[in-house]
Design a binder for these strands. Structure first.
Lengths: 343, 343
DNA sequence: AACAAAACTTTACACGCGTAAAAGAAATTG
DNA sequence: CAATTTCTTTTACGCGTGTAAAGTTTTGTT
């Protein structure tokens, strides 16, 4: 590697013995130049350390190769994991992923979108905060930038939505719990941030109804994203008060369940299916940690990879077509029952 | 808000009745224009939706207002959390945070730095992968871009390093464990990815030596970032084989401990300090989940906020000074003993 | 009111690359 | 080998902003 510093494409064209427009063509699509030319450029690239100035490139393009990925909360391993998978797919497709977390804050979510607008992304993959989201402004953003929503939907917003079929997933686990023991009560947040939570509640009610059982809702007060804390606090209270009519708790998501399990443990209530167990607890999502809880958590698995792949490919399709979709495309994936120790 | 689309600064200057250079000055520093002028611009900003083109802005600047934040693994809540804190600080200081995770992959880490170089960041906050990192290339990057390392150090690389004092922290917990029960064995990975792990091992050996106890190392085979899995697998093996000479296990980090706790639970060994407990387990880091494990995990807390603040402010200092530090600045923070149920 | 200082306007050039048009060179074809 | 096609070069302009220099207006001070 020569030490000579290459300042710009002009200089790089000079040292590789070609003209600047040819170099430009090469960087936009290496296969668009003659094979021999391509080799000459690649050889020069090995000798000299040059990469086109990203700002100059994108100044002229109407849109860039950037793809925004926005999730509600990066410190939640569930979103961190799905973001990781999406990021990989975006890279493989030759785009530049730009990952942003909203920290559970609707203003931050809008800021993220505003900041994305500044870098003129080719498209955006957005998991909205949910109930708290500023739906109008998100909708306005989606008018400007092709956007695919995932995990949590906003009616009519975005080119497409990819998520989980709550009715199927909750149905599955309610059915399982009823077959193997007492019908479950449903443990959730009083004011869930996530619209999926509402769907899950409805799904629970419907499933119980269908099986001829009386539903029981346990609604924990509390705001924010400290789900484990809320699950723990309310779980402790429930166990202490002891006015449950069932020994089986289905939690709206795994993080609540993790908090609940902790509460049960501290209260000395054994959770599980064997003899001597006082409670059964199940969750929903197959959170990365749910296989290490005590006991391990029975839950409904979201297929991270399927959701990520479908979202990303839908977006790539829209970007390549260069036109918006005729109608909003909605995809629901089935959840999978993961039987572990807790129920 | 008028609907008229503002294309560029020229047009915005026109509608606000000022010249373009004045507008440019305003966007670079609102306080650099007369108060009345500033108000005029701000009023215009409320009427028209204009924001300068980021690519055009940065094309001329030798460096931008971007600050890169690179962590080894975003799906690890520990790093997600510290990244979140740093991100907030960077924003408050008027910079644009660019968050990148290396997915535990040294190539990805280098890619991240390469990509950062393209956006000419004012500085970078980097938590290296550790043992696997391509130290030479990271060093080369740090020559070009002011970089502050945190969490895990690379000798002589970067303007500064901010981390935890392993000897103090491990000393603290070893001391506590020895005072309150049997001296601990040290549970770690055979080939840790993180150099902190080596320091922690040395610190353990030193602390045990000082207290006149015989150290015992338990080294789990396994690679990668699935620490819980490794902790679980090796923990199960240890418990099954039963050739421990102590009932107390100090884990090199909380994630290993989480796996170990799960193994103990499944083996029917009660962990804790009370009567009827077969094992004591302690960790290190105060991982966000360690307060919800069963039992809750006794550990050494890293002061996330202190590490984040010190790293960020050191970097801001270097950026503002415009010159590199005379000598590499190294800061270690003390860990804090967090006594919970497990030991 | 006079004056200096501060702020603004005008003008002009720079940044690094995309891209179009026309002309020239090289590769491919029959 | 000539004709044709494909690729490359030359030339030139545009993108939206930073920024410097020189001239003009406004502001604040005495």
């Amino acid at each position: 590697m020569d030490d000579q510093k290459i300042k710009n494409m002009e200089e790089f064209a000079a040292v590789s013995g070609l003209s600047r427009p040819t170099i430009s063509k090469f960087f936009n699509d290496p296969s668009s130049v003659r094979k021999t030319t391509r080799r000459r450029i690649e050889e020069a690239l090995e000798r000299f350390d040059y990469r086109p100035n990203m700002y100059a490139i994108n100044q002229n393009r109407r849109l860039t190769k950037n793809i925004g990925i926005v999730v509600p909360y990066l410190a939640d391993p569930f979103f961190a994991e799905i973001a990781r998978v999406i990021e990989t797919l975006v890279l493989e497709a030759g785009f530049r992923p730009v990952l942003l977390g909203s920290h559970g804050d609707p203003e931050q979510e809008i800021d993220n979108l505003e900041n994305l607008r500044l870098i003129k992304p080719a498209g955006v993959l957005l998991a909205p905060l949910g109930r708290l989201s500023d739906a109008d402004r998100i909708a306005a953003f989606c008018e400007e930038v092709p956007t695919v929503l995932f995990d949590s939907s906003i009616d009519g917003v975005g080119e497409a939505f990819v998520g989980l079929d709550s009715f199927q997933g909750i149905g599955l686990i309610v059915d399982y719990l009823c077959r193997t023991g007492e019908p479950p009560a449903f443990f959730e947040m009083e004011k869930p941030t996530n619209p999926n939570a509402y769907k899950r509640r409805s799904a629970y009610l419907a499933a119980m109804d269908e099986l001829g059982h009386t539903p029981q809702l346990i609604q924990a007060p509390g705001e924010g994203w400290e789900f484990e804390e809320i699950g723990f606090r309310e779980g402790s209270r429930i166990i202490r008060d002891g006015n449950l009519t069932t020994d089986t708790i289905l939690c709206s998501n795994d993080r609540l369940a993790i908090g609940f399990l902790s509460a049960a443990y501290q209260a000395g209530k054994k959770v599980g299916i064997g003899a001597g167990c006082a409670l059964r607890v199940a969750g929903h999502d197959d959170h990365p940690f749910s296989r290490y809880t005590c006991p391990t958590l029975t839950t409904v698995a979201q297929d991270y990879s399927a959701i990520a792949t479908k979202s990303a490919e839908t977006l790539f399709g829209v970007i390549e077509a260069g036109t918006r979709l005729d109608s909003r495309e909605v995809t629901f994936f089935d959840g999978k029952l993961i039987m572990r120790g807790s129920a």
